[in-house]
Design a protein around this nucleic acid. Structure first.
Lengths: 205, 205
DNA sequence: GTAACTGTTCAACAAAGTGTTGGTTAACAC
DNA sequence: GTGTTAACCAACACTTTGTTGAACAGTTAC
């Protein structure tokens, strides 16, 4: 059943939870979300199957646990993003600030590479992608958007926010799935370049 | 096992396949990809469980079948998209042409609403999203992009294409998940408006 | 140190789903 | 109308699931 599990706080408990979460990310990355059984998971984690049920009610519960852990870590990033002076973009000064924020974002993503490639990979969890988009959208709306748009919400404004959130996440995902990987600095430069264009502009560095 | 199934072409066969595909879309939409068993599926489809295995080797095989059916239908759209004069965007004439192509895209999406909301919804198939992005990217690269970028591929060009593909698909998904739904015409107007902006430009209709 | 907790382990269980089979019935194509 | 073939049905061994109770062992508090 999907009852809520109270997470124990004992060195043994933390150890078991970590073993399970690590094995989970590994298996999702290799076989996808429903490409393995709980039995497979506990064997890889070197944890008794009964122990799994002591911590999590189901695979979905463990998934939720992993995703929440990640999303909680985003809040620091959000504060930095909130400082971007969107209305004054285009000057050399603001662009270099945006660049530094993008570097932070890509660095953060790189640090969570295993989890992200697994959960956002070809057999990952589509709702995790939605949650990330929602988080980014909310951040953009609450912290960056001009007062006038925030108060006077129209479909256009919402789609505008969704448009850029999806675009940026899309680039991040392309980057993650690319084995010959650019550095966070290179990606920030690329992204600043692309975002300053509008559709149809010539592509130049 | 995942051996290939030769699809029979008999009135009875086509009927069974359709019943199974329809029930599949319905169940994926309601409970997500692994929220139901094959037994559930065949009961809803009013088809014997053995019949399922006569047509499909697994749930994933049926999923692949549904996705392919949809992706094959995109080719007409691709030809229209290929006619967009990207290098000359910005004029009133070209913008109205782009508008009409967007209307076609949103209309096409609306016609496949059930399948798309199910497979791209919160418990859908993330790899389907990737396949659509890939298809759109390939179309953009092969047909729209200037000769100079097509030949002289750089990471920037690839990310550029991915950026816009993700952005547009993101807007389409927002639209699908929005119950108070704009018309395809309204969406085309919105999208043309957004795409002509660059990040930081004031939002105006 | 030692005693009281409490998480882990192990074996066992019924229940459900899976993938396959062989025999029967009925719809289809020609 | 007749041969073909898909759908149906019951049964099968097998795997996974979620739960249980008792024994064991790491942790915490005194």
């Amino acid at each position: 059943m999907s009852r809520t599990i109270e997470r124990k706080d004992d060195r043994r408990s933390r150890r078991s939870r970590k073993m399970l979460a690590d094995a989970f990310v590994e298996l999702v990355g290799e076989r996808g979300l429903d490409g393995f059984s709980i039995t497979d998971l506990t064997e890889l984690a070197n944890v008794n199957r009964g122990t799994f049920y002591g911590h999590f009610s189901s695979k979905e519960d463990l998934l939720e646990y992993c995703e929440s852990e990640f999303l909680n870590g985003i809040s620091e990033l959000e504060e930095r993003i909130a400082q971007v002076p969107v209305t004054e973009l285009g000057t050399e000064e603001t662009d270099s600030f945006v660049h530094s924020v993008f570097v932070e974002i890509f660095t953060f993503v790189e640090e969570h590479e295993a989890l992200l490639t697994a959960l956002l990979g070809p057999k990952g969890d589509i709702s995790f992608e939605h949650r990330i988009i929602d988080t980014v959208c909310t951040t953009l709306i609450d912290k960056i958007l001009n007062e006038q748009y925030r108060v006077n919400r129209t479909p256009l404004v919402d789609y505008y926010v969704g448009y850029y959130s999806s675009a940026i996440l899309g680039v991040v995902l392309m980057w993650l799935n690319n084995e010959s990987r650019e550095t966070p600095e290179e990606m920030a430069t690329i992204l600043v370049g692309i975002a300053s264009l509008s559709l149809g502009d010539p592509i130049v560095l």
